[in-house]
């Protein structure tokens, strides 16, 4: 008798099968909700609080896109995706946008048919060791045991790095960041390796952070970029230029505090174009005139988002580094809004 649950729900599910193949923008507008694939939980980047409200650096991108498209940053449905399910979730149309600290690589871009929009965080793999070990450089790690998460690009990077430097190491494989921390704290490995942003957060959460040091070497390039499906150029443009809009807003000094003032019109034609008081850039991507105003209001410009979620004022305390504006010696460089 209870099989009926299955059949009944199956019927309901097949009813719910909506129209397919329409443009993502139309889908999102019709649904009134952006479906955003996020991490199942990564400190500073995506985490739900006690009430289930998501926040974080990646989540801020979802909110900005939702604000640009729907005018309301809260109209986002967050779908937590694991490392294994993230690309299928995007490919099968389960999510509209994947903002899940995903490294932009050749094969993912081409073979997996993803479209990476714009890098929102330049990460890289680093090492953490105990201070009393006396190690000051990754080059001194010959023969060390290293805790490493399985099934990630960090595992491959580690192998490449030690091979290139003609060193040996003993991998201690762990399943998750939490387990890696436990193993490292318990002394099961001499060094712990993962993305530098993750290392900083991990170290900050230790009971005695000063007993541990993060080595200066960064052994890989990890440009993290929100991704969309290939084949919907308009949607790609929307996400890409929303991110560029946040970056450019920081460059031009548009903040969530002064945006209402600036949106009335300024002497700077580029700001005017971005905020819709001059020309109509929004219409070119199928959005309203004030799309970027809404996006920037959602969580502030790129710099504000960074400062609020992972920046030096937060417990995670990441410096801007590569993620500073190009004018400040970083790599954040938005093409002109023209």
């Amino acid at each position: 008798m209870k099989k009926s649950v299955f059949f009944g729900a199956l019927t309901v599910a097949s009813l719910a099968a909506g129209v397919a193949g329409a443009a993502t923008l139309d889908d999102v507008k019709a649904r009134g909700e952006l479906i955003c694939g996020v991490n199942t939980g990564l400190v500073g980047f995506a985490a739900p609080d006690a009430n289930g409200n998501w926040s974080g650096f990646d989540v801020a991108i979802c909110k900005a896109v939702a604000a640009a498209v729907l005018g309301d940053p809260s109209k986002v449905k967050y779908v937590p995706t694991s490392g294994q399910t993230r690309f299928t979730a995007l490919g099968s149309g389960e999510v509209d946008l994947l903002a899940r600290n995903t490294t932009w690589t050749f094969s993912r871009d081409t073979d997996l048919k993803l479209q990476f929009t714009a890098t929102n965080y330049y990460d890289g793999q680093g090492f953490m060791v105990r201070k009393d070990s006396g190690v000051t450089s990754a080059k001194e790690l010959d023969g060390a045991s290293v805790c490493i998460q399985t099934g990630t690009t960090t595992e491959l990077n580690l192998a490449d790095y030690f091979k290139a430097n003609n060193m040996s190491y003993q991998p201690i494989t762990v399943d998750s960041n939490a387990e890696g921390e436990q193993q490292f704290l318990a002394g099961a490995c001499d060094a712990y390796t993962t993305d530098a942003s993750g290392l900083a957060a991990t170290r900050a959460a230790f009971a005695n952070p000063s007993d541990y040091v993060i080595l200066p070497e960064i052994i890989s390039k990890e440009p993290l970029a929100p991704a969309v499906r290939q084949g919907d150029d308009q949607w790609t443009d929307i996400v890409r230029w929303t991110i560029y809009g946040l970056i450019a807003a920081e460059e031009y000094g548009i903040t969530s505090a002064n945006i209402d003032e600036l949106a009335k019109g300024t002497d700077n034609p580029e700001i005017n174009r971005m905020l819709g008081t001059e020309g109509n850039l929004g219409a070119m991507v199928g959005l309203d005139k004030d799309w970027l105003v809404n996006a920037i209001k959602a969580g502030g410009n790129y710099g504000e988002i960074f400062a609020a979620t992972i920046g030096e004022q937060t417990p995670i305390g990441l410096a801007r580094g590569l993620n500073a504006q190009w004018t400040q010696g970083g790599l954040m460089y938005a093409p002109p809004f023209r």
Binding site: N39, T40, G41, L42, V43, G44, A46, A47, A205
Partner: peptide
């Protein structure tokens, strides 16, 4: 895992 993603409870 997601509770640990909240910095208050990381660790």
């Amino acid at each position: 895992d997601f509770i640990r993603a909240d910095f208050n409870w990381k660790g």
